[in-house]
Simulated assay, not measured.
Amino acid sequence: MSHAPAVLITGASTGIGATYAERFARRGHDLVLVARDAARMEALASRLRQDSGVAIDILPADLTQASDLARVETRLREDARIGILINNAGTAIGGSFVEQSTDDMARLVALNATALVRLAGAIAPRLAEAGNGAIINIGSVVGLAPEFGMTVYGATKAFVLFLSQGLALELGPKGVYVQAVLPATTRTEIWQHVGTDVDAMTNVMEVGDLVDAALVGFDRREPVTIPPLHDDGQWNALEAARKAMLGNIVNARPAERYRSPA
């Protein structure tokens, strides 16, 4: 039995989630793997049990389905062994906003945003009461850049960033660490969902490199980790500019430029 907190990972059957499972297993953490593909998770769990000797539970779930999501929420609320949640499950859809169906958009929001916030909400009260633990939310640099043209996907990832920063402010003083991880183009199966050949793309980060970098940020307790950004001064400058506005955006009267006709 591991003395380290158990880690629940969503989207754990492949890609970023599976790699997080490997890395935390190496660190001696027991795991709870959540994804739709039970066979893939069983294969991963069998290998990791043999390689690392940790205990691994498999929890098949489609997080866009209310009953499945509720089962995972219950596990997070009731299993005191789980001290780290990795909100990794997510998807994307191809096409422009006017080409995407509203049903596809709703499913995207349900997985990328609604499921993520519900799972964080399930575990956060218990971690806050215990005074320790961590929540890792996988966002995307697309959430910073509407220019990339992935409007709904990017909006969900902007939500992930904002939520993570807000949770860090609320939960940090209670001993709970919250990290937002913002990948750029990474070699995962998500590109199949949008009909793109990732092998034809440039500047593609390998999953292992992404997760290893994210874990450096995790160990340093960074609130926001952006593995592909070489000049962290740019992020620091963006944050400084945003914070500099805070004292100027709450006023009783409109700004002067809006007080006269154009």
Rank of each mutant, 00 (worst) to 15 (best):
A168L: 01
W191C: 09
G172A: 00
P183V: 11
V204T: 13
T196K: 15
R221N: 05
V152D: 03
I136S: 03
V198C: 12
I190M: 08
Q165S: 12
T151H: 08
Q192E: 15
G195T: 08
K174W: 01
N203V: 07
L169R: 02
G139L: 06
G195A: 12
K174S: 00
L182N: 04
L161V: 02
A214Y: 05
H193W: 07
A180M: 05
D209C: 08
N137M: 09
A184M: 11
M205Q: 14
T225H: 04
N137D: 09
I135R: 00
F162C: 10
P183C: 14
N137G: 10
M201D: 14
G172F: 01
M205V: 08
V178A: 03
A158Y: 03
D199I: 04
G195N: 11
K157T: 06
V178H: 03
V198G: 11
K174I: 00
K157C: 07
V142F: 07
A134M: 04
A158R: 03
R221Q: 11
E170S: 03
G154T: 06
G166K: 05
L215Q: 11
A168K: 00
V152S: 03
I138N: 04
T196D: 14
E147Q: 15
V211H: 05
V141R: 07
G143F: 05
N137E: 09
T156I: 05
G149K: 12
V207R: 15
G149W: 08
D197H: 10
M201F: 14
A168V: 00
V160N: 02
T188H: 08
P183M: 13
L210Q: 10
V176F: 00
I138C: 06
V207A: 14
I135N: 01
D197K: 11
M150F: 10
V204L: 14
L144Q: 13
N132W: 12
T156C: 07
V176C: 01
G133L: 02
D219K: 06
G175I: 01
L171S: 02
L167V: 01
V216Y: 08
G195F: 07
H193I: 04
A134T: 07
D219S: 13
A184N: 13
I138F: 05
M201A: 13
K157I: 08
F159Y: 15
T151D: 10
A214R: 04
L182W: 02
L210H: 09
A134P: 04
M201R: 14
M201V: 11
N203M: 10
P223D: 13
R187H: 15
V152K: 04
G133E: 00
L144T: 08
G154Y: 04
V152N: 03
E189C: 02
Q192I: 09
V224T: 13
G208D: 15
F159D: 01
G139F: 01
A134V: 01
T151Q: 09
N203A: 14
E189T: 09
M201G: 13
